[in-house]
């Protein structure tokens, strides 16, 4: 059964531009997207910065009114039935804001418990359980201002779960966390899914999406460009190999020529410490290495690897195609 149904969703922001001659500009953040999420499913919304992920989540969580289209969650309309819906959903937005820093973690949770009209005795019992679950039992009495970013994020998880919502929206929950913090949070998300919560997760970390999500929609420039299981999305690039070429110094001048080659399907660059890595998706596999190095004449080249494509490569191809 579908718990979330999104149909032709569109959201336009109005902005004023220019300091002296002010003019009005419309920015389309979400452009007619449709998808559904089944009960107990962990669904990923994947996309680059500015793709429309957060805007979509804010509309799903009743914080923004859609310009067009409809969203039904648990059979309720997010605009018309916002009040009824709010006690049945929980959300966390990435980042450290949204907590009362001068209060302790426990006081924050107690306050939100009263805002959700929870029974005070039940809240008192639930708070230690939640703090235990997010690994904050030892620090619950401390003021939030002394928490690390990861601790604040985990407190947000506890806050979102306080009223035991059926549906959870997690908007880039691991953004800015160190690897250990991110891993701990992923474990928490996995446990929540085991409790049969319906979860929508937005992220631009492929490994996270691959490891957690049953289905993924890739969103770019406000449109959904692909949807399916991680395996289905990977199959988009199954006929390709990925050639990783380490280069030192700028290669920007070479990019147009490389992109124009028939054996180059998609190309992206990653910065790794003092070197850059060219990631080239090619149907020619290892045979493309030689012509490729020929085109990079004069550039200091390090290691060259030919490997199988991952979800990240599928994502790069989808986003590049859209460009």
């Amino acid at each position: 059964m579908n718990v979330i149904e999104v149909s032709n969703l569109r959201r336009v922001y109005n902005a004023n531009v220019g300091a002296i001659r002010r003019s009005h500009k419309e920015i389309v953040a979400v452009d007619g997207i449709s998808f559904h999420i089944e009960g107990g499913e962990l669904f990923g919304l994947l996309g680059p910065n500015g793709a429309g992920k957060t805007t979509t989540v804010k509309m799903l969580t009743t914080m923004l009114i859609p310009t067009d289209g409809s969203i039904r969650i648990l059979g309720l309309d997010v605009v018309r039935d916002a009040k009824k819906l709010r006690s049945r959903i929980g959300f966390i937005y990435g980042g450290e804001r949204g907590l009362y820093w001068r209060l302790s973690g426990i006081d924050n949770l107690r306050y939100f418990g009263s805002l959700y009209h929870l029974d005070p005795q039940a809240t008192r019992k639930r708070i230690p359980e939640l703090l235990e679950m997010v690994g904050l039992s030892e620090r619950g009495e401390e003021k939030v201002e002394g928490y690390s970013r990861g601790m604040k994020q985990r407190l947000h998880v506890a806050r979102a779960l306080l009223h035991d919502p059926e549906v959870l929206f997690l908007d880039e929950p691991t953004l800015g966390l160190d690897p250990v913090g991110a891993r701990d949070l992923r474990t928490i998300i996995r446990n929540l899914q085991a409790e049969n919560k319906t979860i929508l997760l937005t992220t631009h970390y492929m490994l996270e999406a691959d490891a957690l999500c049953q289905r993924i929609a890739v969103i770019n420039k406000g449109k959904i460009v692909a949807e399916g299981s991680p395996a289905e999305l990977k199959s988009i690039v199954s006929d390709l190999s990925v050639i990783e070429v380490e280069v030192f110094g700028s290669v920007d001048d070479f990019l147009p020529t490389l992109r124009a080659q028939s054996f180059v399907d998609a190309l992206s660059i990653e910065n790794r410490e003092q070197k850059q890595v060219l990631l080239i998706q090619s149907p020619a596999g290892a045979e493309a290495v030689s012509p490729l190095l020929g085109l990079l004449a004069g550039v200091r080249v390090g290691k060259v690897i030919v490997r199988e494509p991952t979800l990240e490569d599928a994502y790069i191809r989808l986003v590049e195609e859209d460009v």
């Binding site: 969580t61 009743t62 914080m63 009040k83 709010r86 006690s87 959300f91 937005y93 980042g95 804001r97 949204g98 907590l99 009362y100 820093w101 939100f112 009263s114 805002l115 959700y116 009209h117 806050r159």
Partner: peptide
């Protein structure tokens, strides 16, 4: 400013009560 308004609005409590 502190980003808590969204959290308040998301609860069943009317904002004027807060």
């Amino acid at each position: 400013w502190t980003g808590t308004l969204e959290m308040l609005v998301a609860t069943p409590t009317p904002l004027y009560i807060v």
